[in-house]
Amino acid sequence: MTESFDKIIAEIREALNISESEEALRELRARYLGKKGTISGLMKNMRDIPNEEKPKFGSLVNQLRQDAEDAFQKKSAELREKALEQRLKREKIDVTLDRNSDRLGAMHPLNQVYYEVRDIFRKMGFEVVDGPEIELEKYNFEMLNIPKDHPARDMQDTFYVSDQIVVRTQTSPVQVRTMLKHKPPIRIISPGRVYRNDDVDATHSPVFNQIEGLYIDKGVTFADLKGVLNEFLRKLYGQATVTKFRPGFFPFTEPSAEVDATCTICGGKGCPACKGAGMIEVLGCGMVNPKVIEDCGLDPEVYSGYAFGLGLDRITNIKYGITDIRLLYENDVRFLKQFI
């Protein structure tokens, strides 16, 4: 009897060997393990088996069923494995191809540099304050110690809207507005667009961007101004940056200074960008003129402060080696793509 069982299992194994599809497997299974299959048929022989051998016969049939089941499982697993293998092989893709979509864009270089500058000052406790671009002449000039007919107005070619209103030439009016509204300590930067009546060329633009800063408090000194700006310039251009404070003139500060920093392009050796000087002018600053403080309703005997300003376009051009300011406002995508 065991021989015939062995024969069945051998038969199944042989049949499985040559089966290459799930479908063939299903047919085979039906043939051997189905309700009317060979193995189920064996159980029908039970009644011809002597009683004392029935348990043994039963367990042998079960064993056979188990072996057959295992063989099917094994074969089925093999087939699945093979099918997966084939699928994976079939699904090979050319990874060098692109879909050409969903590329990164970029912020305008001016704003990238603005964010960089802003973040340095924020870490030093400066708040960002905004103000109107069309401004009262009073705030743009008068309250900054630049009365009508003052020669300092020649320094700035102004777009006029009316007798009393100008398109701002500097972001300093934001400082005036802040001093009028807030009590010291005042510690702000005011970024934004400013306008000058200049014809467009490689170094002039009627629209450009400034970042100005103001700190008003008790006991602020010129030495503090030097400290904060040197810290800023070292953070922006690197720890090795050397600076030079030169006396300068701005009507709203006294004393005033212009600040040079090591040329970032040549590292101080001298190059065309710095006209061989190794240093490049980056900032204007000074101690806020007591008259300005007083006009803004604060007592100059109690409060002092410093102010500084930098041209964002200039800083950006120096940083990226841009030689023509017009590129910044032309927005050619091939230019913008260089700043991703």
């Binding site: 030093m124 406790g125 708040e127 807030h182 300590p185 005042i186 510690r187 702000i188 408090d217 006991g219 602020v220 000194t221 010129f222 030495a223 503090d224 030097k226 400290g227 904060v228 040197n230 810290e231 030079k244 404070f245 030169r246 006396p247 004393p255 200074a257």
Partner: peptide, 14 residues
């Protein structure tokens, strides 16, 4: 200007 020291002072926030 170069002889004036460099300090950070007593910084007060707004």
């Amino acid at each position: 200007y170069n002889n004036i020291p460099e300090t950070l002072g007593n910084v007060h926030f707004m």
